[in-house]
Each structure stands twice: as structure tokens, then as C-alpha cells.
């Protein structure tokens, strides 16, 4: 099998450690796919869905930005939050989206924070159930 190692780690725990045949990640500039023997890469991630094809079936994971590193057939995803999409509450995410959109931001830092909150809530609302 043409598999490579995939591990997803957060500051709190190692969320996932599996063999995968194909992985797609939400990179900062669009989705990116990984196969075995990909050249070493370091990429910034966006908020979104990680999709991994493993010999035991498909695994889905919501990742909250971060980074991915591919070296020697080892794909490491560093993210500050990762969870199963089925654990996301859509109604709650929509409430947070509305709250974030209604927030007044006057300086660049607050604006960046608000944009991030909006994007995060929007993706969660889409993925949640």
C-alpha cells in the first residue's frame, strides 16, 4: 500500500495518528492534496476540513488553522484546535457567527480578530450538524 503517516497534534493532545493513502488539507490558498513521496513542504493552514483516506476508510477532522509539514512520508498537522465535525453544534456556531459579524472593530488588530472569528464560525456552521 502506498501509505504515509499522518499525525494531527494540538497543544492539548495528539488527536490523530494513522496511516493514510491520501490526505487533503485546507491550506491558506486553497485545498491541497498529499500522496506518498511528496516533496518536503511547510504550509500554513486555513480553518477548514481535513480529509484523510485510510485503509480503514475515510476520516474527517475540523482543523482550526495552523501548519502542516510533510517530510519523509510523515505529514504532521499542527493546529490549535481539531475536532470531529460531528461534535460541532451548528446552531451554536451560527449564533457565534452572528455575534462575530455584529462586532464593531475600529483598529486593525480588532478587525483581524473579528475576521478570524467570522471565518471560524462560518466554517463551523457549514460543517456542524
Amino acid at each position: 500500500m502506498n501509505t504515509f503517516e499522518l499525525s494531527v497534534v494540538t497543544p492539548e493532545a495528539a488527536v490523530l495518528d494513522v496511516e493514510a493513502t491520501y490526505v487533503t488539507l485546507p491550506a491558506h490558498d486553497g485545498a491541497i492534496g498529499f500522496l506518498r513521496d511528496r516533496a518536503p513542504l511547510l504550509v500554513k493552514l486555513d480553518v477548514g476540513l481535513l480529509r484523510a483516506e485510510t485503509p480503514d476508510g475515510q476520516r474527517l477532522l475540523y482543523v482550526d488553522g495552523g501548519f502542516a509539514e510533510m517530510v519523509d512520508n510523515r505529514l504532521t498537522v499542527l493546529t490549535e484546535d481539531a475536532k470531529d465535525p460531528s461534535d460541532i453544534d451548528r446552531a451554536e456556531a451560527e449564533a457565534r457567527l452572528a455575534e462575530a459579524q455584529g462586532k464593531l472593530a475600529t483598529d486593525p488588530v480588532a478587525m483581524a480578530n473579528r475576521d478570524k472569528a467570522v471565518r471560524r464560525a462560518r466554517v463551523q456552521a457549514r460543517l456542524g450538524s
Binding site: 490558498d29 500554513k44 501548519f67 490549535e80
Partner: peptide, 26 residues
């Protein structure tokens, strides 16, 4: 390792260093 970077190393550092501070505090 000779990486391919996306975006540039400088921009990646802009994200990585704050993440380092956050995780140090955590």
C-alpha cells in the same frame, strides 16, 4: 530539510512565533 514553503518563510514565521508564545504560556 530543504522545504518548499507556502507562503514565504517570513510570512510563516509571522504565524509561528505567536503560536510559540501561546503554547509557552499554555
Amino acid at each position: 530539510v530543504d522545504y518548499e514553503f507556502s507562503p514565504s518563510p517570513e510570512e510563516l514565521l509571522d504565524e509561528l512565533l505567536p503560536a510559540t508564545v501561546r503554547v509557552q504560556l499554555f
